[in-house]
Design a binder for these strands. Structure first.
Lengths: 370, 370
DNA sequence: TTGTACGCGTTATCAA
DNA sequence: TTGATAACGCGTACAA
């Protein structure tokens, strides 16, 4: 601890010239030169090939020299240069991860699932957000290619977007998350959103609700399927869709709040349907804010159901009944499968996994009074 | 668009042998060989140095050839190999980011701030969690070194931990987040936790509270300073610390809940102090759960204040009064400063930034009845 | 304005 | 078991 400061300054390291700041006019500071195979070879009195073998765990080397060289390498704080290694081996032990948005608690969980698996296998993760913008997604993908990632995990804007084509063209193994494709060659893991939408709506129907507000989205991933599930459930009960209030463009918490604000402003608090189905938890939370702000109680006056089961769903004002998605698993599945592809090669037919939604009953829904 | 499928398959590319899967017994699939400078040079009838200059924006090249080569490069879908480039330029345009835990909403916001800045400047982010474990942190740092990141952003287990020493020894620019150091050479951005702890407690005192439960931690980053702020505030009101209930080892929501469960079990619901100060929001949320479970209302019976202002703090059952930390800014500041160091070189004295906590008044605190 | 030649750190293929 | 040598893809002095 006390020796720490002296450490960096006084300890004699191999490279004497080419010190930082030594060369005049060098604006940007370059890192001290790290020990290389060559350095160790020199110190050990062998060639770098021998060192490479010793450290690489090759069999064609005597136990004695291996031990000697390993000790030396340790003493010299040798760390292999993965970049240089990639030049010959074509592998970087790095995986590109493209998510819609890191901040989104949904994707945060996915990221965690990925991270755990990758770390376990010694891979690093190059993480970026696409923000759902095609151009940005494309740019990111290019950057990943330039960095020679071994594979890519991606929640693409669309499964036939340009980045997907690029990855295919380059032959880079990749795995699609939270989206699916008809192409049997592609690998993906996706939630059964249709079933989820149906599940949510059916639960409300079973509680006796007959008039609905549906806060849907046309842009959000999987939202179309969820809406289809909603419609199917409604119709299976002999109800008419045209009797329901369908609000579009509900993506965020703010939009959820504003849409409900708007609706209440138009129809008043009295004529409100007794049930609300939201495309996701964020929208549901926004809707709940608006309802309470108007003196409408959840679930006493209006029942409300979300989708995703993000971590805060159970912690909000009224714990949210919602549809659970296996987010952590989604990341794990994708990462594990990708690494397997890296090991075994990619087959003709892709790996395609559908995860199944679960209803999580909390306190935001109740039976209708009637 | 329609030509897409044919693209990868039919267009004659240089490398004819060494196709994927072509070589028998090749277990791991290798990516198709991407176009290199050499390939373009051949196609253009020049040398690779010319191509390098044309694409690198050098001035010593005729506009005509530059245009011709650029067009060719575009047509051949050329992407520079950043890894190979690093061998000569010593820069990778990549930054290693080490956070305690990606899933932690606090660090998620920090990560977002970092990501935005890095992307803006064309850097990629190698993101990992240390999970607060020294060995893991060390291993991660090694991996980052091996990947030759240009710089590192880190929330270290401690500011004099081994990884910090390694980075210093290697001369790799790095920036510490959410932690500080006495060493004037180090760069860090940290919140003034002492002031924050004081702020929270003082607010409670002003509301009339005189008996406190303090849910503190000895492990958590910054928790000692927060506790000091707590103590100082208590004493400045002429109160005795020994009259307060100090509960240690409160880190997580679960621990917050269990500690309060415990306390209520021991002293009963009647003799509970009127105010609770938690080391962070997670602990506060756990405490709130426990209180409600015992029929103790917040803020009617007990006032409760958190710390961090994580995104869900305003959304929980009773919107949480808390101390706000500039998390997003913290990431931004660290990333921006690091990139600047990369450009201008690191000076003798480090950049050290203290961010100031703010009190966010919501609904979990109220004046004492008396 | 362009070409030649070399080095970066590593693995791989020979030959010794 | 070891050594010499050639890649790998790129940048860059230096020469033309």
């Amino acid at each position: 601890m006390h020796g720490e400061k002296a450490d960096g300054a006084s300890r004699g390291r191999q490279v004497v010239s080419s010190r930082r700041g030594a060369s005049p006019g060098a604006k940007a500071r370059l890192p001290r030169k790290a020990a290389t195979l060559e350095d160790i070879a020199r110190a050990a009195g062998v060639t770098k090939s021998t060192v490479s073998r010793a450290l690489g765990g090759s069999t064609r080397i005597s136990a004695e020299t291996r031990e000697r060289i390993s000790a030396l390498a340790r003493r010299m704080h040798y760390e292999p240069n993965y970049l240089a290694r990639n030049l010959t081996t074509r592998r970087t032990l790095s995986i590109g991860v493209v998510l819609e948005d890191i901040m989104n608690p949904f994707y945060t969980e996915v990221a965690k699932g990925i991270e755990v698996v990758l770390k376990q296998h010694g891979y690093v993760m190059l993480l970026t957000s696409s923000n759902c913008a095609s151009e940005e997604e494309l740019e990111i993908t290019r950057t990943l290619l330039r960095n020679k990632v071994d594979g890519v995990l991606i929640t693409p804007v669309s499964s036939d977007s340009e980045p997907i084509r690029m990855l295919r063209a380059r032959g880079i193994p990749f795995f699609i998350m939270n989206e699916r494709s008809d192409n049997p060659a592609l690998n993906w893991v996706d939630c059964d959103n249709r079933a989820g939408g149906h599940l949510a709506t059916e639960y409300m129907l079973k509680l006796g609700h007959r008039r609905f507000v549906c806060l849907r989205s046309t842009k959000l991933r999987g939202s179309r399927d969820r809406f289809e599930g909603f419609c199917k459930a409604i119709e299976s009960y002999g109800l008419s869709l045209s009797d329901q209030v369908i609000l579009e463009d509900a993506q965020t918490r703010e939009e959820g709040r504003d849409l409900v604000d708007d609706l209440v402003g138009r129809v008043g608090t009295g004529a409100l349907p007794s049930a609300m189905v939201a495309v996701n938890d964020a929208v549901a939370i926004g809707a709940m804010e608006s309802l309470f702000a108007h003196g409408i109680r959840v679930p006493d006056d209006v029942s409300l159901i979300g989708y995703d089961d993000i971590s805060l769903a159970g912690l909000i004002r009224v714990p949210l009944t919602t549809i659970h998605q296996e987010k952590y698993s989604m990341g794990q599945i994708a990462a594990t499968s990708l690494l397997q592809m890296l090991r075994d090669g990619v087959g003709k037919k892709g790996t395609q996994v559908v995860t199944h939604p679960r209803l999580i009953i909390r306190q935001s829904c109740r039976e209708t009074a009637s």
